[in-house]
Design a protein around this nucleic acid. Sequence first.
DNA 1: GAGTTTGAAACT
DNA 2: CAGTTTCAAACTC
Length: 736
Amino acid sequence: MDVVSPELNSLLPDEIMDTEAITMEEELPVEHLAAPPQSEPEPPQVPMETEVPEIVSLCPATTSMQMSSASTDAQCSTSSGTQLLLAPSGLITSTTMTTTTSAKTTGPAVTQNLPKISSVTVPANHQLIINKVASAPAADGKSPGTAVLKPEGQKLLVAGLSKTGQPIMLALPHTWNKPATTQGTGDAKAQPTQIKMLTTVGKPVIAVSSASQLMGSSSTLQAQQLKTLQITKKPTVSTAGPMITKLIITKALNNKGLSSPASVAPVVTGRVVTQSTPVTPPRTITIGETVSTVPQNTSGNSKVAISPLKSPSKPVQTVGGVGTSQFKTIIPLGTPPNVQQIQVPGSRFHYVRLVTATTGSTTAQSGGSTNTNPSIQQAKPVMMNAAVRMSVPIVPAQNIKQVVPKPLTSAAQVVTTSQTPQRLIMPATHLPQIQPNLTSLPPGTVLAPAHGSGNMGYAVLPAPYVTQIPQPAFVTLTSSSTFSTATPIQTQARLSLNGLSTSEATSRPRKPCNCTRSQCLKLYCDCFANGEFCNNCNCVNCFNNLDHESERLKAIKACLDRNPVAFKPKIGKGKQGESDRRHSKGCNCKKSGCLKNYCECYEAKIMCSSICKCMGCKNFEESPERKTLMHLADAAEVRVQQQTAAKTKLSSQISDLLTRTTPAVTSGGGKLPYTFVTKEVAEATCDCLLEQAEQAELTTQPQAVAERLILEEFGRCLRRIISFAGKAKTDCPINC
DNA sequence: GAGTTTGAAACT
DNA sequence: CAGTTTCAAACTC
């Protein structure tokens, strides 16, 4: 598995590859959160570990991930050896993870309602073992925040407490601490570690289990769907051979039938406690940078299923990040999401996961759990803040899942799924014919071979393919204060769109298409051609949406078959800057003189070049026609701007007057309109009149017409003044 | 808004 | 590759 190869990247437009404004943060969480491997000194304690509640860390050495949804936070960070950092909500004041390679262990201070943990151990196989030193408090249900740990050596983890005091549990499979026997420590094969955090809509639960257990437990899932995100990261340093850490985010899609809080199932040791319909098993996206195609060794996996949004309607807010703003969470809005994106901070690419919108409950059940602790069963939903920045736009009736993996520098970025490959826009299984033309894929496309199964990979298309998000609400987390707080939208805005600068592409709303016959699956459709979904278009029988994924994929493939560079921006960026932008193919205009928007060059505001095959071209530097057109266009634009500014100024001046204390010139208990004609208002009015005069002059209107226009404008100004005066009388009848 | 023009895309 | 058809945007009235 690899991200777009350097060779391929080199072929992409410069604006696509521009990364200068993207903050890479991957080193920071490692430094802050994870103990360095081997003999490196103990890293300094980071306030984040003690100040940010509900921390779960699970990151390879150079990775950092941050995730959140709704009001939950969890933080994840591992160093080489994939340390797992667990910090109960405000309970662990100092936590240092220990790996078998470094044998570095510090006893975390667990206070309050949690049993004391003597050690937190993360062997080389990424297992994390919390050993209690004190007997667990009685699970009498009176202490919802109390979590009873299993006997020493048992791998039930307390990840934190929810805001209501309910424990967040991580349950590790029994096999987790047996890497040597079950997975062969030191084996060169990648060894995926999966931590699953599971929540329901209202009552998320966190569990850790192997992949196989996840699948096996799916039968216990009822009346709900789970969307699972796996983030796979291959540690750069590992003494026990390549390992893969998978972070699986399971999102409940079905909100119906949400069980009562008391019925929320507890974490099951070694088992994912989820519910799902057999028809719609949890779906997984694996994000990582490993190229390993070694099938997942499920026996050693741990998974973290992250809950869906707890409160879809919860307003945007920022959580965590005390003091240093280590975490920033934008709580999603709207209905439970069925649009998910995977966004890589530091990358210009948006990776998408398409999921089927469903509704239903996400109640977790024990499903054979060995844990009968009622205190755990009453676990309240919590969120995670991991050292991963993740954004989940919540858009009703949309089907994109956006996730933001950690930023990477040179490391490959991979998005794969182990299930439901059709959920991605372009399954790699359809790519054999495309792969020879890798350069033809949309910029930012990531090819992800199957991870585990080996026969299902995906091509993740760049952000332009993910624009079926009318008003996304994001869950955004940043893992460090240095991480850019730019929203996913801002990141997306960096993407080049057909030669336009990213700011252009995003600031200017795309025109809705009006396709009637092409089903928006041919390049006639601008949306499709730009790699976007149709959104708020006027098209008829549109297939350029997530409801017609298969057709769309076929159409994409067909286009690429016809033209390998069909989805590459037509307007390429020249070597010396924007002035060298030119059409990649050139135009073929015959009648328009290349001075109308029929001409793609003119439309892109670039001049025709030698590669154009146009006839009677007037779109060249010295062309008087072109200069005239450009002058007129500029003048028109300036006029509009001036007029708008003048009117705005006039309005603001009048409004300002209303708020001021004005001379008590009254008549019949109210101000006379002329009392509002102050110097400022007069100036603004003159601006409007002058603007009108200029406009008349530019349009070469006869003097009589110009005078009439000016007088009309003056009349409008007077009416506004009078109107505001009347409003003032109405608004403040006492003082005025 | 309807009709026309235009040129890219698709097709042969 | 060239010619033709299809298509949707741009443009005109």
